[in-house]
Design a protein around this nucleic acid. Structure first.
Lengths: 149, 149
DNA sequence: TAATAATACATGTATATACATATATTGTAC
DNA sequence: GTACAATATATGTATATACATGTATTATTA
């Protein structure tokens, strides 16, 4: 449904303002659906994000700094999120021997197994987005990338 | 920059998965810039959202329920946000006489004046998005609307 | 090498949010 | 009208986040 109808706002100052609102609204819409789909697994979106980055690095470790760089939401508190995951035994932490300020984080077998389950969950979730064709999804990707330039 | 480069993720399962990540990332990017631009005014994005809805209704009041319906982020706690705005004398509240469960919220002169300032702030903010033409912004709007259908 | 700056991360604290539950009021079924 | 469900909002509580500050370590510079 058109964003104006969705939030019952008749007019916008410009197409750009409408786009700003549309992106924020759509993201909140997506994010709450996505978060809800993760809920049965007891994991937050930010934690999921960290685990995926760690899988991408595996079997190499990632420092907390690298996690922050790559996270979708830069404002999240990576070191606290890592601690949450460690308590669940989904990741392990060790002080880096080359640079003792840094911490190496690595995903565990248990973490990788959980991710396998979460992948299936995400496949189901992505079906929701199939109102757009692959070409249209690509179009959004190109435009958003251009917007952030 | 292409989202894959931005978060240093080489590949995606599908264009749809990439789009999901791109929207979440772009929204976080936009939202932190937008929030920062509001900071000097001592107002959060959610509070700004509520004030704009109230201006749209003015001089009619809005109930808390109407605010929730129209807010960009449905998970926000509208009644607490209204209370925050009331303390700053930007809105007024009164129990509705027809339905004494409901609360009528109305924006004050001070609130409207602040919004006038915030409009100018937003104009400046929107310049950041001018890497896209109006046609491209419209294209994003059409695609996002279709996605949520 | 001593002093200072920079980096990586952790932590304290205030605020925000999520979710469940409570309270008051209104609507509905009998 | 009484009992029960539904609605509108408020509040309690746990967790999350934002931002500043602290601590340890490494790099730089005089």
């Amino acid at each position: 449904m058109e964003i104006g109808k969705e939030i019952k706002q008749a007019k916008f100052k410009s197409e750009h303002q409408k786009m700003l609102i549309n992106i924020l609204y759509t993201s909140s819409w997506l994010s709450s659906k996505h978060g809800a789909s993760l809920k049965p697994y007891g994991i937050s979106q930010q934690q999921y994000n960290i685990m995926r980055i760690l899988r991408g690095q595996h079997p190499k470790p990632a420092t907390v700094n690298l996690l922050i760089e790559r996270m979708l939401d830069k404002n999240s508190n990576a070191s606290r999120l890592v601690e949450k995951l460690r308590i669940k035994k989904l990741v392990e932490r060790a002080v880096c021997s080359e640079d003792r300020r840094a911490v190496n984080v690595i995903i565990t077998k248990k973490g990788l197994d959980l991710l396998t389950e979460l992948d299936q969950n995400e496949d189901l979730f992505l079906i929701n987005l199939k109102k757009l064709s692959a070409e249209e999804a690509e179009q959004i990707n190109l435009l958003l990338d251009k917007m952030r330039d």
